[in-house]
Computed example of a mutant assay.
Amino acid sequence: MRILHLLASPFWSGPAENVALLAQAQRALGHEVTVAVDRKRKDIAAEEPAVPRFQALSLLDEGGLALSVKSPPWEMWSDLRALRRRQVDVLHAHFTHDHLLARWGTPKGAVRIRSIHAPRSLRSSLPEAGAYTVPASHLQAKLEGRHRPVQVLPALVDPMFEPAKDRKALRRALGLGDTHLVGMISTFQESRRHALGVEAFGAFARQRPQAHLVLVGDGALLEATRAQVSQRGLKDQVTFAGYQQGSAFAKWLQALDEVWILGLGNDWSARAAAQARACGVRVVAVKEGALPDLADTQVEAPTVDAVLAAALSGASAKSEHPTNERIASDILDLYRQAAEVRR
């Protein structure tokens, strides 16, 4: 198949990594795959840009699409015309802008697929597609009325996420002690509940005095979180690791005993939980998105007591996450189903 993914974002965040891993796995199965991203927005100093990443993976589409929510009408018209001329079998749209563009610009003979990455995209105005994906099984029912195939697109995991070969040595290299390490690995924003995590860790540390909290990431609430840690007298038990990416991020994750995921952002596939499980790290998580399928133990409510109870429970899950190859194969089957329905 000739597959074109549309991802109207200039950032290597949210669903971008999942789309890249899916495209790589589809290519490994023998298909021609590229990914078009927002080429218009270049002033994105606060986040890592997507273009260099997709270029390095030889996945970046060079079909001339601006694919930007910042495009004026004439630029969108140009994108529509460029899309209609493309020779592809599958047009896989990932964001609302992509789907609107694909609704009118799908090339003749191609099947249009839409991935929903967060519940806010599930609106009554959602344009028609040949099939849909959702990030978690409980969202499938919301698309049943469209009478089109709907499938879960789970988080894909890079092979670098694997258990540490020598965790003690890794911890020494990162400047961490060989004690019980709890981590939070996300952007410092309201939805990720770092304030709750710090309060819960304070309670956790009173029962496990040797525990240490590692906070990986940056974001708008970073300084507020630093202040909270200081006010709670936890400075000696908390490490701010900063923004990490690629293999460096994998090393910080591998060093942990458990990770607390207390909220999701733009991607409800819960990729961080899948990465942690692949590293042999226990996952304590709230009931959002795909987290219930990936957590070792669930936080019943976003409260200090609930986080503490889950963390101290010692519960672990034995479920296995599907491989990238299996996920890609399942999505290719979805494309075929959509083509059959269209006929």
Rank of each mutant, 00 (worst) to 15 (best):
V284L: 05
A285Y: 05
A285C: 13
A285D: 12
A285W: 09
V286N: 09
V286Y: 05
V286H: 12
V286I: 14
V286T: 15
V286F: 00
K287F: 05
K287T: 15
K287Y: 03
K287P: 10
E288P: 03
E288I: 14
E288M: 12
E288K: 13
E288H: 07
E288L: 11
E288G: 12
E288F: 00
G289N: 14
G289H: 08
G289L: 13
G289Y: 06
G289F: 07
A290C: 12
A290Y: 07
L291P: 08
L291I: 11
L291T: 11
L291Q: 15
P292R: 10
P292F: 00
P292M: 12
P292W: 07
P292E: 07
D293F: 01
D293V: 03
D293I: 03
D293Q: 13
D293P: 01
L294R: 11
L294V: 13
L294E: 07
L294Y: 04
L294Q: 11
A295D: 06
A295Q: 03
A295P: 07
A295K: 07
A295N: 11
D296S: 11
D296Y: 10
D296L: 15
T297V: 15
T297L: 04
T297R: 08
Q298E: 14
Q298K: 08
Q298R: 14
V299L: 01
V299F: 03
V299A: 08
E300M: 09
E300F: 01
E300Q: 12
E300Y: 03
E300H: 11
E300V: 15
E300T: 14
A301I: 05
A301F: 05
A301E: 13
P302S: 15
P302F: 02
P302M: 10
P302V: 06
T303N: 08
T303L: 08
T303P: 05
T303I: 09
T303K: 13
V304P: 02
V304E: 12
V304T: 10
V304G: 08
V304Q: 09
D305I: 01
A306F: 01
A306Q: 08
A306D: 10
V307R: 01
V307Y: 01
V307M: 01
L308Q: 07
L308T: 07
L308W: 01
L308G: 04
L308R: 04
L308A: 05
L308E: 10
A309Y: 06
A309R: 12
A309E: 13
A309N: 09
A310F: 03
A310E: 06
A310G: 08
A310T: 13
A311I: 06
A311C: 04
A311T: 09
A311F: 01
A311E: 06
A311W: 00
A311R: 01
L312P: 05
L312D: 02
S313R: 00
S313E: 00
S313W: 05
S313A: 08
G314N: 04
G314H: 03
